[in-house]
Amino acid sequence: MAGDASARHGSGGQALPSAEPVPARRGGLFAIDNRFLPPILITSILVGANLSFGILEGWERTALSIVVAIGTELVLGRITYGKWPHPASAYISGISAGILIRSPFLWPYFFTSFISILSKYVLRVKGRHIWNPTNFGVSAMVLLAPATVTVLSIQWGNAVAPMAVIWLLGAVIVWRVGRAHISVTYVAAFFLFSFVRSALTGIPWLATVAPITGPMYQLFIFFMITDPKTTVRSKTWQCVVVVIVAFVEMLMRLAELVYAPFYALFVVGSIAMVIEITRQPRSTQGHPQAN
């Protein structure tokens, strides 16, 4: 699996989702196209969690996010490139927005998806977009609409088992697509820097790590920071970048910014991408699909 990807990206691991179909493995539990694994995972999480714990106030908000994301992707992709883009990554953008965004109003769910997808087509350097679309969309919404929009802050329930299952599933998926090193490095860095924060502020260490036990962080760790289209290509530098993300997040948390992980990725991730892109020859333009 690692060999499949290296020729295209120069890094270890399978890139997904992407415009080019990737052959599925034969047989076994994961005998499906890699592009569909994240959508299946995130959908299963959402359905299971809502049926069990009611994490969504209503299906219509998440449905709106998904429909807008896919619709925007199809229209923009078709007009821009003359062919229909694969909807998988737009689906992930939409469902992520639908889960992450919290608001009593309906319009944030529309605009988060709309802005997320638009950012892929507008904010590009040498043919590559530099922000993970959901990260851009969510960050923009909480910055511009703080009185009406917040980010998911609830738990998956009280028991440890559901949380453990999600961590396990997520870990398997990112390993399957060759991105596990990013998630593992970030988690390790988060815990390290949480010790530092605790030491500097006197806040109990368990309180500093409490956020990582929630679904918002699971989405962030498995879907956002591992996005193949908006992470640097070198495996080593992927790890370096997420350590920097965790460090900047620590600084932002010391400044009491609640949405520190999103802002940290917004800043560090984009800078890393710009540096890499400007130092490399212009890549061929393709569909700007990524989650």
């Binding site: 802050s153 609830i154 738990q155 009280n158 440890v160 949380m163 806040i203 368990l206 309180a207 500093t208 790590v209 409490a210 956020p211 036990t213 929630g214 918002m216 948390r253 009491e256 910014l257 609640v258």
Partner: peptide, 14 residues
Amino acid sequence: WYDFSVIAVGHSSI
């Protein structure tokens, strides 16, 4: 609020 938001999202064990 920041400290409150940090603890409020934690698992029941915390």
